[in-house]
Design a protein around this nucleic acid. Structure first.
Lengths: 100, 100
DNA sequence: GCATCTACTTTGCATTTCAAAGTGGATGTC
DNA sequence: GACATCCACTTTGAAATGCAAAGTAGATGC
């Protein structure tokens, strides 16, 4: 199987916005919805849908709590999410490093 | 602007299949259509449409020649394509390296 | 008590992706 | 010498994806 084979790339992580989400969560987890939104420069709706997708894949866990009286949504990177992230990193690094 | 901002990622290059195409072309240019197809594990139709997209973006140039009597389509990475590829590499490396 | 704000979710449209079907010329096959 | 088949792509239409506008629900201001 070729190093350039796109089917080996995890599509759930590879989506542009989701890539940003995963990268950020790999450094800060859990992260509040609003903080994440600012970091990845997403609209509310867009972030919400992509988080749902990541949650369905088992890569993040959504925790709904409160900060005082306000709702506070925390996004946790799951163990599986971290493992998939590492795998993605390795995959993409080898693809990119082929191109020096 | 955040390092995790997905809007800074070149969407034309970032598409899974196109990423493979660009990576391969960055090492081998020009590459024949059929060779490329094998390397990136694409179907004919899929490769054809993505090449059109890359061509419209000015990242590749399609040259139609013959190998004996058979049609031979060569895909060249353009100067602009290479520049955008380098920019993409830098962009994505910094995103990924944030996640150690 | 009405309007506004904050923190999300839902919805519907527009774009993108994909592979099956199509095209067109060269090459066997009898 | 016609008919089928193969090779090298392109076109097409259906399905998935991405996006932001509109919607929801509770808290806060006036």
């Amino acid at each position: 199987m070729s190093k350039f084979d796109h089917t080996e790339i995890d599509d759930v992580i590879h989506g542009r916005l989701r890539l940003g989400i995963m990268a950020y969560l790999s450094t800060v987890s859990p992260a509040p919805f609003v903080e994440l939104k600012g970091k990845v420069n997403a609209t509310d709706g867009n972030l919400s849908t992509h988080l749902t997708k990541l949650e369905e894949a088992g890569y993040v866990r959504i925790e709904k709590t409160f900060s005082g009286k306000k709702p506070l949504t925390l996004v946790h990177l799951t163990k599986q999410g971290r493992a998939s992230w590492i795998a993605y990193l390795n995959r993409i690094q080898s693809l990119l490093s082929a191109a020096e």
